[in-house]
Structures are given as C-alpha cells and as structure tokens.
C-alpha cells in the first residue's frame, strides 16, 4: 500500500440544483489500494465516484488522479475547463463498472471488450481480439465471446463489463455498486473477479453494500452519510469497531 497517491480529493463539493450532495469531501487513495465507500443511499458516495472520471463536474474544491486535476487545467494559477477531447483522454486511464452493467447490447461480449481499444487507442483489430479473448478468459467467460449481452446472465454481463474496462489497461478502477442489480446467487462470481483484481494490485475504488467484501478485501473503508465522510480507516476499525453513532446505526441494519 505504500507509494504514491492515486486519487486526491480536497474539499470537493457538488450540488444538483438546491440539493447539496457532496459537502466537502477530503480523501486520499494510494496507488494499489482497495478503497471501499459505504453508506446509506443518498449519502453521495456514487456521486463522488462519478466525479472522479468527470461524469459529474465538481462545483468547488480540487480533485486529481495521478497528480493531474480532473476536468480542469491549471495554467498560471488559473483553472481552465478542459476540452471534451482532453476529458476523454483522461478517462482512458480510469475504468468504470456500473450498477446496471451498461454493456452495448448491439455488440457481442468480445466486441464490447474490443470497442474502446480499437476506437480510442487505435489498436489493430487482431491485437484487440487476442487481448479481448484473454480478458474474457480471465473473467471466466472465454466461451461466451460470441454471445450478445441479452444472452448472458446478470453476473456474466457484469464480468464482461469488468473485462471491457480492463481492456483499456486503466491505472484506476471505479466500481459503482457492481453487485446491487444482481440476483443473490450471482453476486459471488462478480466479487471473485474483483478479489482477483485486488490481489493483482489494481487500485480500486468500490461503492458497495457488500460489507463482507469490504471487510475481506479493502485496505481502507470510508463511511459516508449526508455528503460528508463520517469515518474512515482500516476495515477492522470502521466495520469491526465503529466510533460514530451513524456508522453503528447503518452497520446494524446491513450486517
């Protein structure tokens, strides 16, 4: 867990109209760390995750990935909005996995995985195909390469989505409640893939309700509520011995 900082958030604010969703988030995620965000729905944890790859723009504060501000350039002490192309370039290195998978339904599993390497990185189709098949193999779906998303179970779709994100060889992976839309018996296969990924040293930020996963895999657990960080630390501390009443109340409901 040693090493450089991957994600640094300083006093990050975000509001939707009149609703303040993030009210000053300060967090630091180290390179290679597995970072779990817990909290009740509406606590702002998903919004914070989406700010990290600029799917949402922050209203105040600073947010950087690998030492570079997200969505803005700082020139002579002044912030400049980034052009769409520059934002797209930043996102190449940040993989994201969504609650509802969001696979492209008109493409096969393999085509889903090949799409970004070919279209964004300009990789040759042959190379992308080879790597795509290897990635599908890695998530246990080597034999489903030719299937369309509608022909796959939820767990299989989510594993394809993980392979699709990994195809861009990201330095950071964001998981937005990756198992919340799955039938209970399919949760395990997705979590297993994520555990493998954590073991290989991928930097991961995971918004989840799977307390067991957080306890077992996370290096740091953060409990958010009402747009602020309530408590953070090692899983044994935050989950095993919570200090705040709100954390205790939340954990008593989900455990």
């Amino acid at each position: 867990m040693t090493g450089t900082t991957m994600v640094k958030a300083e006093n990050v604010h975000k509001s939707f109209g009149q609703v303040d969703v993030l009210k000053g988030i300060d967090l630091e995620v180290a390179n290679g760390e597995v970072f779990c965000l817990l909290g009740p729905s509406g606590s702002g944890k998903s919004t914070f995750l989406r700010c990290i790859n600029h799917l949402e723009r922050i209203d105040a504060g600073r947010l950087s990935v690998d030492g570079k501000l997200i969505g803005y350039k700082e020139i002579a002490g002044k912030l400049h909005e980034m052009h769409e192309r520059e934002v797209a370039a930043q996102r190449r290195d940040i993989g994201m996995v969504f609650q509802r998978f969001n696979l492209f339904p008109h493409m096969t599993a393999l085509e889903n995985v090949m799409e970004a390497p070919v279209q964004v990185r300009g990789e040759s189709k042959a190379a992308a195909r080879e790597r795509g098949l290897a990635l599908l193999d890695r998530v246990g779906l080597g034999d489903r390469a030719g299937n369309y998303p509608a022909q796959l179970s939820g767990g299989q779709q989510q594993r394809v989505a993980i392979a699709r994100a990994l195809a861009m060889q990201p330095k950071l992976m964001l998981f937005d409640e990756p198992t919340s839309a799955l039938d209970p018996e399919l949760v395990g296969e997705v979590l297993d893939v994520m555990k493998d990924l954590a073991r290989e040293g991928m930097t991961m930020i995971v918004v989840t309700h799977e307390i067991g996963f957080a306890r077992e895999v996370a290096d740091t657990v953060v409990f958010m509520d009402g747009g602020v960080v309530v408590e953070s630390g090692k899983p044994a501390e935050v989950i095993g011995n919570p200090q705040h009443a709100r954390t205790k109340a939340f954990l008593s409901k989900v455990l």
Binding site: G95, F98, A116, Q119
Partner: peptide, 9 residues
C-alpha cells in the same frame, strides 16, 4: 455514460 467512461468522444 459507459462509452464516455471508456474514453470515447
């Protein structure tokens, strides 16, 4: 969103 997250313009 998925396409943007992958870096597509």
């Amino acid at each position: 969103e998925a396409a943007h997250a992958l870096g597509l313009t």
